[in-house]
Design a protein around this nucleic acid. Structure first.
Lengths: 343, 343
DNA sequence: CTGAAAGCGCTTACAG
DNA sequence: CTGAAAGCGCTTACAG
């Protein structure tokens, strides 16, 4: 590597002080005469000078960078939300460092530490169970942080999250309206009491009750992704089989579709199917899949906007507001008993 | 924010100099007595001290961070390769900053500049057309950079890339073996001569010729994703329609599936279909989709390993090696004329 | 309008 | 074994 040009080189070449060059870089042009300005400009382009933002960050105690830690990047939700976050950050001249905790609290912890050591100006996190103390510490020192998708038990923090109960309600009502009566719900593991899963099940129960239907506990399945086959076997071996399934998210949907495919269960005909999370292949699946879409773009925008506001306005105390977003129903054919085309 | 603890605070508390604390932080314990070491350790934990890596980076002229710029994050290829890159970087204590150029050379240029200003130690880029000069400049100053997925015309740089011609050959041979005779290839726009698209078409032509089949130019379609409908209309209005389609990548596959779905063209029966890029729903689509998988994980590992080696070993001149990776054929039912189950 | 000086939080020769 | 000093490349009062 050829050696880097620094502000000193520019100052020397333009025959001014470093201070003045710095003022130029920060566009405070009234701090210098027109010809000085021109000289500096010339020197910069001739030398191909690029400021070193590491030095700048050190001095300013701000890196114009935020960290985003998602629990699991495999969810389409994560990538979509991340894209929205990046959009608003970009527009504001903020860089983002994305980290995938891979559902592992240790990893998450390590990422938080690394990001803090890197002096990020703020953090967006889809939290995992087990790092409560760290979150608390950060909140106590008023470090800018906003949570996404999940509530943390015992923590009073600003969070952007889906109205999960409403999502289930949409699903249940839609299924009932289409003549399904024995509705099951299948989600990923409940052992870590991940908010969306818990709330979606609660919403499912409430919606059934509202419709005067008794909740059957056997119709509620929460399990690790790799034991879906077994769980679905159980479900479909019940004396009274369900006639429709609500899938908790996109990853559980994949497992369900694998299962129905392998076991020749015809979606739509043999079982209704609706999933939370819109999926890319929803419209082209046969039958096309009815889904409950999350407004991922909106949610990403909001969480980023909140964080950037917090960063700008440091005095702004952490207010522990929970921002709920509305899911929306996308009706396609997997919830039509006859499986006839919708057009 | 409560004020940050610095190395000075630790030094004061432990009653040693900053130098010694620094030696401690860098685990050079033979530079101090055992009790000194213990005192420092105590001070650090009591104060909850976290080193500031920005300051460290400034001094060391190394940020332990690399930048990754992908042309378009929407490709499954991008996200998979990124995950592999992150894995090897993580293992080596290197952070990654991911940027999505969104097929926009200006954006790519801006990202490169931002990343350089942030003093990243190296760059992995899936290049776009139009930034040749920047690449050249970086290579000339021996800045560690490795390219991925695409060759840059006029540039002699280390690149990790699929054996795209082989991918097409696999596809063509497989289709021919399964009785398809009139094979078309459909890819995203060719106007920017993106390497994989060009090479896949070349490979397609070569493979046909090798099999003694004349190339029909009408069977080769390269177009923007949003004009696929029209292009496919043309294709299926030909006097002699193709009986099989090779899809250039995952995004073009989506368009093709949308088209066949909307036009009631039965994949497998009415037209064979094979795509480069394995897709999540491949196995559960009806019919299940035959694909040509890229070894994305391997490719990500290799590109990261090469870059980290370059960074470690600065003298290592840029060697312009092109590392080709083998695609593999995953046979499923979309290339079976009868559409019968494969089991 | 311009510059000298101090300082951001580290690291690393160097001296003792 | 330990510390004082210089320096990484910036920014920003402050003085003139």
């Amino acid at each position: 590597m050829t050696k880097k040009i620094t502000i000193s080189d520019v100052a020397k070449k333009a025959e001014v002080s470093k201070s003045t060059v710095s003022q130029f870089l920060n566009e405070r042009f009234d701090y210098m005469g027109d010809e000085t300005r021109a000289r500096i400009n010339k020197a910069i382009t001739e030398l191909g000078y690029q400021p070193n933002v590491v030095a700048r960050s050190l001095k300013l105690k701000s890196t114009s960078t935020i960290g985003v830690i998602v629990a699991n990047i495999l969810h389409a939700y994560s990538t979509q939300v991340i894209r929205a976050i990046e959009n608003v950050c970009n527009e504001n001249g903020i860089s983002t460092i994305i980290c995938n905790a891979d559902d592992n609290p240790q990893k998450e912890r390590k990422y938080i530490e690394t990001l803090l050591a890197k002096q990020v100006d703020g953090l967006i996190v889809v939290p995992l169970k087990g790092n409560l103390e760290i979150y608390k510490k950060l909140l106590k020192q008023d470090f800018p942080i906003v949570f996404l998708d999940r509530l943390v038990e015992g923590l009073d923090a600003e969070t952007v999250i889906l109205d999960n109960e409403r999502a289930s309600e949409l699903a249940v009502n839609h299924l009932l309206e289409n003549g399904y009566k024995k509705i099951a719900i299948v989600t990923a593991s409940l052992t870590d009491s991940v908010t969306p899963r818990i709330e979606r099940i609660n919403g499912y129960k409430k919606a059934l009750e509202k419709n005067g239907i008794t909740v059957q506990e056997e119709y509620i399945k929460g399990m690790e992704l790799d034991s879906f086959d077994q769980g679905l076997d159980e479900l479909f071996s019940l004396d009274i089989k369900p006639d429709a399934i609500i899938s908790g998210n996109d990853l559980s949907l994949m497992e369900i579709l694998k299962y129905t495919f392998e076991n020749d269960i015809r979606v739509g005909k043999d079982t209704g199917l609706i999933t939370v999370d819109e999926v890319s292949f929803g419209p082209i699946h046969s039958p096309p899949l009815t889904t409950i879409a999350q407004p991922t773009f909106e949610m990403g925008m909001e969480v980023a906007t909140i964080l950037l506001d917090k960063i700008k306005d440091k005095k702004l105390k952490q207010d522990s507001v929970v921002h709920r977003h509305e899911p929306s129903l996308i009706i396609r054919n997997s919830t039509k008993k006859e499986g006839e085309p919708s057009e």
